[in-house]
Simulated scan of single mutants.
Amino acid sequence: MGNDNLSIVSFNSSRKGLQTLSSEQRPTYLQRLFQSSSAKPDICFLPGDDKYAKLNAISGYGQFTIPNSDDTVVLFDVNRVKMEKPKVSLNSFGVLPGLDFDKLVVPQVEVSTLQPYKRVVKEFSMISWKYGYFHSTCISVETLMESLITFSQRLAITTGKPVLIGGEMNIEYSSLVKIVKKLSTDQQEEFLTNMQPVMSEQGFLPSMTKSSLKDIRHLFMMNVFKCKSNSSNGVIRTWEDRQRSEVVPDCFIASKHLKLAEASLLDVEEVTGRQICMPLLQKHKPTQTSMEIPVRPPKHHGG
């Protein structure tokens, strides 16, 4: 069938650099990145600060905001991507510690082929939030991350669509990986235990259940995609490290069903074709990844 790539960029890690720019300079700087042929993102995660309100100056992109707020958290290429509210009630997933749906952005995403025959080739859900969500929590960041992963798993199972998670996270990388692996393992074991009687009734041997349900399992089983950087095994460090202005690239969390590339720092000078004179812009760079998508609609429903 062949495959294409969807470009995804996060500016959460470059927030400190962007803050050095005036409100007049910021749209111009971002326009250079958004309009460049080598880095033009199809989907962009933003911190969601009030200072980003002038992003409507970037043509060709739609905004997805925090509920009950004007803060922009997600931008997307309107020619290729469509985002809308999920067709499920988020409150139906139950109460999870620290989870506030008024601070989350949870769009349902459709990726289409380009004109003249626009057809949906990929569907998934996204989860993000306003900058500082982890820092302002009244519970431990580990518990909040457990809640986010559990919520994303329930969303994937309910909608039948994989999930992509991105945003500022105040948590150690090793702790993040441990949480994601544990919840993925626990959810898989519970799922297979519940499905075994049903599969047996349909004539499947116990040894066949796991492989037969691979597509469903990979909706709620997650991987962490860390940034390839020169920092010591680090993607995410503590809030205190951030305050000391250390470079803390973003990372992404995604269902195994989604084919994401390992994240990397975006070479801003190469993209813009100009030397960046401001030290913080040189140091705090956007983080990029890509998602493999089919070039033609799948024969089955979904993507």
Rank of each mutant, 00 (worst) to 15 (best):
G2S: 14
D4H: 07
L6A: 07
L6I: 09
F11A: 02
R15D: 05
G17V: 09
L18I: 11
L21G: 13
L21Q: 06
S23A: 14
E24S: 14
Q25P: 11
Q25H: 11
Y29R: 09
Y29I: 11
L33F: 01
S37I: 13
S37G: 04
D42S: 10
F45S: 02
L46D: 02
L46V: 05
D50G: 15
K51W: 04
I58Q: 07
I58A: 08
S59Q: 12
I66L: 14
P67W: 10
D70V: 05
D71N: 15
V78K: 15
K82P: 01
K82L: 10
E84H: 14
K85P: 00
L90Q: 07
F93D: 01
V95Q: 05
G98E: 03
D100W: 03
D100A: 10
L104Y: 13
L104N: 02
S112R: 13
S112H: 14
T113D: 04
Y117C: 08
Y117K: 14
K118R: 14
K118T: 14
R119V: 07
V120K: 11
F124Y: 14
S125V: 04
M126R: 02
I127V: 15
G132T: 03
S136Y: 07
S136V: 08
C138F: 06
C138E: 06
V141I: 03
E142Y: 01
T143Q: 12
L144C: 03
M145L: 13
E146G: 12
F151Y: 07
F151D: 02
T159K: 13
G160D: 04
L164K: 08
I171G: 03
E172W: 12
E172K: 14
Y173D: 12
Y173I: 04
Y173R: 09
Y173V: 07
S174H: 11
S175G: 01
V177N: 06
V177H: 00
K178F: 01
I179Y: 07
I179T: 07
K181Q: 13
S184Y: 04
S184C: 02
T185F: 00
E189P: 01
E189T: 10
E190I: 06
M199F: 11
S200H: 07
P206I: 02
P206S: 05
M208Y: 08
T209S: 06
S211I: 10
L213K: 00
D215L: 11
R217S: 10
R217T: 14
F220A: 04
M221E: 13
M221R: 13
M221A: 07
N223K: 14
V224Y: 03
K226Q: 10
K228H: 08
K228I: 00
S229A: 15
N230Q: 11
N230V: 02
S231R: 11
N233S: 10
V235E: 02
T238C: 05
R242C: 03
R244I: 08
S245P: 00
V248A: 04
D250C: 04
D250K: 12
C251H: 07
I253N: 04
L258W: 07
A263F: 00
A263G: 01
S264W: 10
L266P: 05
V268P: 00
V268M: 06
V271S: 08
R274L: 12
R274K: 11
C277P: 03
C277R: 13
L281Y: 00
K285Y: 06
K285I: 08
S290Q: 15
E292C: 11
I293N: 05
V295C: 11
K299H: 09
K299V: 13
G302L: 06
G302D: 10
